[in-house]
Design a protein around this nucleic acid. Structure first.
Length: 563
RNA sequence: GGGGUCGUAGGGUAGUGGAUAUCCUGUCAGGUUCCGGACCUGAUAACCUGGGUUCGAAUCCCGGCGACUCCGCCA
């Protein structure tokens, strides 16, 4: 509802500026502590009109016409506060906000903004996900949810790097080392991969086998393809299980080898030869890209393709199927992503938008799958759920075992997801196990707790026979904390539309909303209020519950009704 | 050597030109006759440094210092 308010303010301000004959570029509206919305337009006008901004602000306010549409307006007042123009919402806005929430989210179909293909996670299928991948997956998934809610048709891809040397090493390894039967699939693959790497260190002949295998795979040797398929699919099944536990799903798994065997990679190389600035270094092909010193190798001496070339083919294919392409990449791919963009420009393909996130490191140093130095996502989830269970058990000994486990799962995974997404992606994180397991901080459990409190009030109301009805009188909600809560509730749509590629802003809003609810909870008794007020407050609690659970859903966090 | 990102209270973090710089944690002091204390209130304490642009800079530009990272016919 806040968006509607903002639009009306824009409308009204525009008219006033026109009447007062000011030429402006931007209305410079912003949220403010001093008002519900505030405009700084007087500052920029001050220069052009050589008058103090305070005078201009007052002048604009004098030209405002707020009385006419008294029936439908959302604005109560607008005043000049020095150089600022401060605008405030009215009771109708508060009433309308609650009403809209009760009606439910408007169907996304009405405001289709186009199709987006977003790629995230895309971990190599040579072992389980570690905490670095976790950050990628969670940022990506929240992005998906935000964009869907903002009205886009979103398709999620996992790009499977099945042509890398690592996979060949793992596949080769299976010929000498058996999979552990009692392990989760992706972990079993990692064991083989790590053991195979050790074999390489001991015996260089093994490396020749690996290279032979890679050539055969690229050439499309059927027997080799079957061997690959076994390993890659085994690993992916394990990875998918981990992702599912985190509440994450991909629509499509795209294997990079498809682009080689389908001929798309060759087409890309041919086209680059014609359109690009190409150099031959022996028989390898180097592509010179504008503004990047380092040439990009697009073909090896032996004629085989490279990761980047295959990625170009993949991006061309994606780009034909949607309006926007978004890639969630780790910081180490930044140069690659620039090269990719430049090369795509040469091919006249839509350039993707990148969400680049900084690394997660351990207090002991950086991660390495090959060296076996990583924290597996599964291990982390296991521990955080255990930790959550201890908390639940301590506080809710009254519940039965199944219920406690269910809540622990929601709280644990929620805390993990929130922890990963609350920080801006371009911030480096040093992962601290104890810190992540410390559930008491103001993360997901804090928000979930507010939701549970709301549910608890509603349940108690039902037991006492109070009905949650639509004929409440919203004008009875006069307390400051009530009004603040309603205003916060009104901003979900606004936050979603303004934080498209910044998932941490949604996390921030969720926390603020929970804070507002807790303040209301403290200040305003619901069940013990007089009948009229009680009805209005019950309606407010009901709305708060809806929006809390909504925003948690955008974060991919579940909303337990009790905890 | 070249490029990139980051530098905000003791630690972590929000804020990309505008009003008294956000929140967590830490430390200290408080709060429940009332719907769940995983809650709430108060105190403490910060924009790396030097220039520049601007009426106005944590925010933009340039230099310095520091941290991280990328620069392979790997992926």
């Amino acid at each position: 509802m806040f968006l509607e308010f903002k639009e009306e303010v824009e409308q009204v301000l525009k008219e006033a500026l026109k009447k007062a004959s000011y030429e402006y570029k931007e209305l410079e509206l912003e949220e403010s502590e001093h008002a519900d919305i505030s405009s700084r337009v007087a500052f920029s006008l001050a220069r052009a009109y050589k008058k103090p901004p305070e005078i201009i602000a007052a002048d604009i306010v004098n030209h405002l016409n707020l009385e006419i549409p008294a029936e439908n307006t959302l604005i109560s007042d607008a005043v000049a506060a020095g150089p600022y123009i401060n605008v405030y919402v009215n009771d109708f806005f508060l009433h309308k906000t609650l009403q809209k929430i009760k009606e439910g989210i408007e169907p996304a179909a009405e405001k289709k903004k186009g199709k987006i293909i977003i790629e995230h996670t895309s971990a190599n299928p040579d072992g389980p996900l570690h905490i670095g991948h976790l950050r990628n997956a969670i940022i990506g998934d929240v992005l998906v949810r935000v964009l869907k809610r903002a009205g886009y048709d979103v398709e999620t891809h996992y790009y499977v790097n099945d042509m890398g040397r690592q996979i060949a090493v793992a596949v080769c390894g299976t010929e000498r080392i058996a999979f552990a039967a009692n392990k989760k699939a992706d972990h079993a693959v990692a064991d083989v991969y790590i053991a195979a790497n050790r074999l390489i260190e001991e015996n260089s002949d093994f490396l020749k086998d690996v290279e032979k295998l890679m050539r055969e795979y690229e050439a499309g040797d059927e027997a080799v393809m079957r061997k690959y398929e076994v390993v890659v699919k085994k690993c992916l099944s394990g990875i998918q299980a981990s992702l599912q536990r985190l509440n994450i799903q991909h629509d499509l798994f795209v294997w990079e080898s498809e682009f080689v065997r389908g001929g798309a990679v060759e087409e890309v190389m041919e086209e680059l030869k014609q359109k690009g600035n190409i150099k031959f270094d022996g028989s390898a092909l180097l592509l010179q890209l504008e503004g990047i010193e380092k040439e990009l190798v697009i073909q090896r001496t032996d004629g085989t393709s490279l990761y980047t070339t295959r990625d170009l083919a993949y991006h061309r294919w994606k780009s034909d199927r949607c309006d926007r392409v978004i890639d969630v990449f780790g910081k180490d791919h930044e140069l690659v992503s620039q090269q990719l963009s430049k090369a795509l420009e040469i091919l006249r393909v839509k350039v993707p938008e990148f969400v680049i996130f900084e690394f997660v490191s351990l207090p002991t140093g950086s991660l390495s799958t090959r060296a076996g130095r990583y924290i597996a996502a599964d291990e982390l989830m296991e521990k955080i759920e255990e930790r959550a269970y201890e908390e639940v058990d301590k506080r809710r000994g009254d519940l039965d075992e199944g219920k406690k486990l269910e809540i622990a799962k929601k709280v644990g995974i929620g805390a993990l997801r929130y922890d990963m997404v609350k920080v801006s992606p371009d911030k480096h994180i040093t992962f601290d196990f104890d810190d992540a397991l410390d559930i008491e901080k103001k993360g997901a459990p804090f928000i979930q707790y507010s939701h549970a409190r709301a549910c608890s009030i509603l349940m108690a109301a039902e037991e006492r026979g109070y009905v949650i009805a639509d004929d409440y009188d919203a004008s009875l909600l006069r307390e400051e904390s009530e009004k603040e809560l309603i205003k916060k509730l009104s901003k979900l749509g606004y936050v979603i539309s303004s934080s498209e590629l910044k998932p941490h802003l949604v996390a921030k809003y969720a926390r603020e909303l929970a804070e507002s609810f807790n303040l209301f909870y403290k200040d305003c008794p619901v069940l013990n209020a007089d009948a009229g007020l009680r009805k209005a407050r019950l309606a407010l609690v009901d709305c708060a519950k809806t929006v809390l659970s909504d925003v948690l859903d955008v974060l991919g966090v579940e909303s337990p009704e009790e905890m």
